[in-house]
Nucleic acid binder design. Structure first.
Length: 624
RNA sequence: GGUCCUGUAGCUCAACUGGAUAGAGCAACUGCCUUCUAAGCAGUAGGUUUCAGGUUCGAGUCCUGACAGGAUCACCA
């Protein structure tokens, strides 16, 4: 079933689905679709011109003009053969007469502005209230794997990883809300030369140090030795250069590098001593990661380890050779030629028959499909690997994989510091654990300064600091379009005011206070308490329109794999709500019906904020 | 050097996929707490959308070419 199907000529047919929902249920909901349907009819009736509602579009009317939706006339003047003004008048008049929901219109230059009757907005709101599934699409039968995080076990997670993890988690949740079945996967890079580097340095320098004895989390302990390796390695290179060795040669001949390489060979052979050390150190690292993931609030349904998967893919190389997708060079190495697709020739197997990075990624792609029969596979990986995934996906498609079309690289930009790129080896990184702890600490100071924790127990207060600090951090990283690189200045702390997580959380807490009061005085605010309501003020109407937009934004966020769409939307919603809050009274309002409506509207805004923030992995407090 | 990405207010980001006078937040300035939480609201100021051409009724958005920043182009991962 195609997602965009909309049959305007037969709204009686009950079995037509739209976003997995019966069309008939939509009638009060999707005003935009209804308007387009009527505009299509207008073209038919007035100008004898067939045009499908699908090929028409409305846009929100700009604030400075009267109206809710605007229809741009310029593209249709050839059809109407009238001036823009006259065309707009004819269509507007037709709509006012035939489409019950159009209360008024005006034409300015080539723009037809339509005002929707207030009673329709009230009905839209009622249908949102009455719909328990609002913001959750029905299952669409598609299964998607989102791979994210994918850490190396030789160092702790840094700020760049935080962006990766928050993005991967949020995209997964957004896809779920869109009706996908989602499998969150983590591919842990637990083997290879860089892991051996930490191990060599540990063997040489640690004297049996453990996380307990060092008072360090396991991942930080491994990271410490990774940095120590690099220090010693650089020293050794310099010594060799002083003795007259060429720089490139020195890099290869430095004693510790030779040891690391030897250790990798021993590891692959299964040397018990090496494997023991590897298991011990990785075990420490996993304990550290588990703690970090817990603080981050992310989780996984499936964890793959490269130590299990690194040999995969060689059979695909033979398959590719048979199919003529790959070719062999005289030295025995195997290549793929992608020059016809604008890329280069790319190695897929070394001349000694060992795998390269892309070999195992081919194997893992198949493995994921065998394990879960996924329709789509999303890789949340930084944009430095754009080329790699371009090649990988082209190869899998050439090989005719059924999931080939569903492969997607969610490529996100680096997080830069004012000093430039972060480098683990040189210690110029913003550590993830440190940053999260600092955020919570800042939230504590800020909250105490504002004196906002009267009546909180110790535990409640601590939970609030965590909610706010993590909310500020996650929102900061998620509000930006994923593909853009972003700057983080450690000297300026992340804000708690304006377009921030805490601003949205605050809006939720404010509404919670209203709901508590309404419950306390026994005010009804369910769908049935709204009958007889017949007029709205501007901020009320704006809020209803925004609430209605939620599902549209949800869909866009999934199509673009962009949590920023949700973040931006939630800010707009919170902003509009705060305007409403400042302008309009609730409990001092004399008409009980208006009281009920305003509470109901507030509560629905809070619910939407909660839902949306949850997609971003952000909690919202009842009080702050 | 080839390829790809990015360039919007002093700073951080939007702009519904080609539509009206390019919008928010931060920072600056001015108001608003005796009424539901001021982590808020209202207002002032801030722009040749890097530059130059082109496409058309109409361009921040599309095409070409500069300029600037970044990534990548390993028998590394």
């Amino acid at each position: 079933m195609e997602g965009k199907r909309y049959i305007c000529t037969a709204p009686k047919e009950p079995m037509v689905f739209y976003f997995g929902r019966k069309l008939t249920e939509l009638i009060p909901m999707d005003i935009e679709k209804q308007l387009l349907h009527h505009i299509s009819s207008a073209f038919q009736q007035l100008f004898n011109h067939e045009i499908a509602p699908d090929s028409l579009a409305l846009q929100p009317t700009r604030k400075e003009f009267q109206g809710n939706y605007t229809f741009v006339l310029f593209p249709f003047l050839k059809v109407t053969r009238l001036s823009p003004e006259e065309s707009g008048k004819r269509i507007g008049e037709y709509l006012r007469e035939h489409a019950g929901l159009v209360a008024d219109y005006n034409v300015i230059k080539g723009f037809l502005n339509l005002s929707v009757d207030e009673s329709h907005w009230i009905r839209v709101f009622q249908s949102i209230l009455a719909n328990p599934d609002f913001g959750q699409f029905a299952p669409n039968g598609e299964r998607v794997m989102v791979e994210y995080s994918s850490p190396n076990t030789n160092k702790p997670l840094h700020l760049g990883h935080l962006r990766n993890n928050f993005l991967g988690y949020a995209v997964s949740e957004i896809l779920k809300a869109n009706g996908f079945e989602v499998i969150k996967a983590n591919l842990v890079n637990d083997r290879g030369i860089h892991i051996c580097k930490s191990m060599v340095a540990y063997q040489k320098l640690a004297n049996g140090e453990t996380p307990e004895s060092a008072g360090l989390k396991g991942d930080h302990l491994a990271g410490k030795y990774y940095v120590l390796f690099d220090k010693e390695y650089k020293k050794q290179i310099e010594e060799l250069i002083e003795k007259g060795m060429d720089k490139e040669e020195a890099k290869k001949q430095a004693p510790w590098m030779l040891e690391a390489q030897q250790m990798l060979i021993e590891w692959e052979k299964g040397n018990p001593e090496v494997v023991d050390l590897w298991k011990t150190m990785n075990g420490w690292v996993y304990e550290g990661f588990a703690a970090t993931y817990k603080t981050m609030g992310v989780d996984f349904d499936k964890t793959y380890y490269e130590s299990d998967t690194y040999l995969l893919g060689k059979d695909i190389v033979s398959e590719g050779l048979e199919k003529g997708v790959f070719f062999k060079k005289p030295n025995g190495s195997v290549w793929v030629d992608l020059t016809s697709e604008g890329l280069d020739e790319k190695l897929v197997l070394r001349s000694d028959g060992t795998s390269v990075y892309i070999t195992q990624d081919m194997g893992t792609a198949d493995l994921k499909y065998r394990d879960f029969e996924i329709n789509r596979s999303v890789y949340v990986v930084g944009n430095e690997q754009d080329y790699h995934f371009d090649v990988l996906f082209k190869i899998m498609r050439k090989l005719g994989r059924p999931y080939g079309k569903g492969l997607y690289h969610l490529s996100y930009g680096m997080v830069d510091l004012p000093s430039g790129k972060m480098k683990s080896r040189e210690g110029t990184v913003v550590d993830g654990d440190d940053l999260m702890a600092e955020m919570v600490e800042t939230a504590r100071e800020h909250t105490q300064e504002l004196g906002k924790i009267d009546g909180f127990s110790n535990e409640e207060a601590e939970a609030l600091y965590e909610t706010l600090g993590m909310g500020a951090l996650k929102y900061f990283l998620l509000k930006v379009d994923p593909k853009k690189r972003m700057l983080f200045n450690p000297a300026e702390s992340i804000e708690f005011q304006g377009n921030t997580g805490p601003f949205i959380q605050y809006t939720h807490a404010r509404i919670s206070a209203i709901r508590r009061k309404a419950d306390q005085i026994g005010l009804e605010y369910g769908p049935n308490s709204l009958s007889g309501l017949n007029s709205l003020v501007e901020s009320e109407k704006n809020l209803i329109i925004l609430l209605q937009d939620y599902e549209k934004k949800l869909k866009t966020a999934a199509e673009e794999y962009a949590p920023s769409v949700i973040a931006q939307y939630l800010f707009d919603l919170a902003k509009e709500y705060n305007r409403f809050y400042a302008e309009l009274p609730i409990f001092s309002e004399t008409k009980g019906q208006i009281q009920s409506f305003r509470v109901a509207l507030s509560v629905e805004v809070a619910k939407t904020i909660r839902k949306g923030m949850k997609l971003l992995g952000i909690n919202v407090p009842e009080k702050m």
